[in-house]
Simulated scan of single mutants.
Amino acid sequence: MSPYPVPAETVKATRARYLIALTAATFVLTSCGTTPVDENSLPTATSSAPLTGGTHTTLDAVTATLPPVLAQSSICSQGSNTEAGDLYLLCSVSPASPLNQGFSDNNIVYLVWVNKAEAERTLQHWREENRPELVTENTTHTAAARLEYRDAVNSVHYVDTITGLNIDISAGGLETAEAATTFLHRADLMN
């Protein structure tokens, strides 16, 4: 206990900032997760198999999978585990980072987890759905980004079937599809 009295306004302001930060983190973790896939609608033979994971369960294991330029520019904290046992990380890229130059005065915030089976299933789903114009694949067709900027929907999702990276980027820091594409290239996620 502090020997000096703390004004009630300071305590209230500190609690309010904590609650706002907690609410924002909870919102990002719940709203930026992957879109659930209706397994019955996917025609692949492996679509009904449950996702397995749990191979990347520490902060270091997940960040080691990121491209070095993105890992070095990101500040990450542990989230919870997916149903498959994979650790989510909540990461941000500062406006001072070269990856964020010219995009926003705010951090670019993203969720990342590693699950190869989920990345493969997601990419297959993107290829089969009725909006192929939203998906951009790399030259080897092993990674892809799905960028949706229309109406009230702004979303940036990325998967890599080789590393198992699954990334959901909060589109608030990347206001256009062009900005999102540039960020993905700068971060060495797309070639």
Score class of each variant (00 low, 15 high):
Ile167Pro: 00
Ala179Leu: 09
Thr136Ser: 10
Thr122Asn: 05
Ser94Gly: 03
Gly164Arg: 02
Leu123Ile: 03
Gln101Lys: 11
Ser104Val: 02
Leu174Asn: 02
Ser31Met: 11
Ala45Ser: 12
Arg131Ala: 13
Thr23His: 13
Gly33Tyr: 04
Ser31Gln: 09
Gln124Lys: 11
Val112Thr: 04
Cys32Ala: 10
Leu165Val: 03
Asn138His: 03
Thr10His: 13
Pro98Gln: 11
Leu189Phe: 04
Val11Arg: 15
Thr55Lys: 02
Phe103Cys: 04
Ala84Ser: 12
Ala24Thr: 09
Leu123His: 02
Thr52His: 08
Gly173Val: 00
Thr34Met: 05
Ala8Met: 13
Tyr18Lys: 15
Val69Cys: 14
Ser47Ala: 15
Arg131Glu: 10
Thr46Ala: 10
Val62Phe: 05
Asn81Glu: 14
Pro98Thr: 15
Val37His: 08
His185Ala: 15
Lys116Gln: 09
Thr140His: 13
Gly172Met: 12
Val153Cys: 13
Glu175Leu: 11
Glu175Ile: 06
Glu129Leu: 13
Ala179Trp: 03
Arg150Phe: 07
Glu129Ile: 10
Cys32Trp: 04
Asn154Pro: 09
Tyr4Val: 15
Ala21Arg: 10
Ser97Tyr: 03
Asn81Tyr: 15
Val109Lys: 01
Ala152Arg: 09
Gly102Pro: 08
Ser2Ile: 12
Pro67Asp: 14
Ser80Leu: 07
Thr58Pro: 02
Glu9Tyr: 14
Tyr18Thr: 15
Asn191Gln: 12
Gly85Glu: 06
Leu89Tyr: 00
Leu111Glu: 07
His141Arg: 06
Tyr18Trp: 13
Arg121Asp: 04
Thr182His: 03
Glu39Asp: 12
Ala8His: 14
Leu89Arg: 01
His157Phe: 06
Ile162Ser: 09
Ile169Glu: 00
Asn81Val: 14
